[in-house]
Nucleic acid binder design. Sequence first.
DNA 1: ATTGCGACATGACAACTATCATGTGCCGCA
DNA 2: TGCGGCACATGATAGTTGTCATGTCGCAAT
Lengths: 161, 161
Amino acid sequence: MHFENGRSLFLRGDPVTDMHFVIKGSIHLVRHQSDGSALTLQRAGPGAMLAEASLYSRTYHCDAVAFGAADTCVYTKVSLKRLLAKSPEFSNVWASYLAQELQRSRLRSEILSLRTVSERLDAWIAWNGGSFSQKGEWKIVANQIGVSPEALYREIAKRRD
Amino acid sequence: MHFENGRSLFLRGDPVTDMHFVIKGSIHLVRHQSDGSALTLQRAGPGAMLAEASLYSRTYHCDAVAFGAADTCVYTKVSLKRLLAKSPEFSNVWASYLAQELQRSRLRSEILSLRTVSERLDAWIAWNGGSFSQKGEWKIVANQIGVSPEALYREIAKRRD
DNA sequence: ATTGCGACATGACAACTATCATGTGCCGCA
DNA sequence: TGCGGCACATGATAGTTGTCATGTCGCAAT
């Protein structure tokens, strides 16, 4: 399926019938709080399954919105659960994927709990290898480690001595 | 098994033979960086499986250290994998657990990416409900949302008007 | 070629928080 | 009963970062 920017795939409270596997673009899972502000709980890019936990829930707990144009591959919830029940190999792949995502998410949490830009960049480099992202990805890195692009530029400049 | 404070359960590079399920206390999964500083990748409390992703790895990527006295239930890796392969029900429970942990970790990441204590506390309350602890848990909350206890006390005091 | 956009870059300032210091009240323990 | 530890609480200050402003550069589209 294809989604234009801002298009919603499902809303909170909807019954879970399908699972979306992101092929291209990015889909955000957002939760609106009572005070009006929003929390983005997942930024699903290519190769990610959207709202993995919804496989084990009857209804969605968040809204899903296309962030830019995006393509997804849709599977029905029942077919996935049937496949999981029938194929230990697929179960293994699924659990392995979840465990890896969990590891990455935990790492991000810990990086975000560091206090200075310098510490966060060190931690990021320690895992993502310092060499690449030379072309135009610094802004994305800044977002991942939870600092403003300007602050990251300053930290990089400081290290060029 | 029982572990005293500071006791290590395994070290990075060790082959993965066992999986630890935490019964009591807390066990930290830490990764030492080249510059000497350490990153804590998981704080496994009661009811948590330690280093879930190690089930899908030949060797450990981090060290595990008991944080205070702790008790764990130990299962061999092969028996767990055999159970996962043989029992679709257990596979389902395992994947469901991983998905829930992933959801919680993603939430924590997003809370930590908020900039002010006020926003973080709002987001925390929105998920952990108003039924929070009146007795002596605020310091723990402060740690979870990545702010100093003092800052949290100040924010709470400000809201008592 | 010119225009326009976006990443990269840096300065200045306000705002927020971590830290240190100090103090209070509760509770378990000797 | 008194002591010590701990969570709770608050003030003062310095440090770091977000934000706004401004500017350069490369690149793509007209």
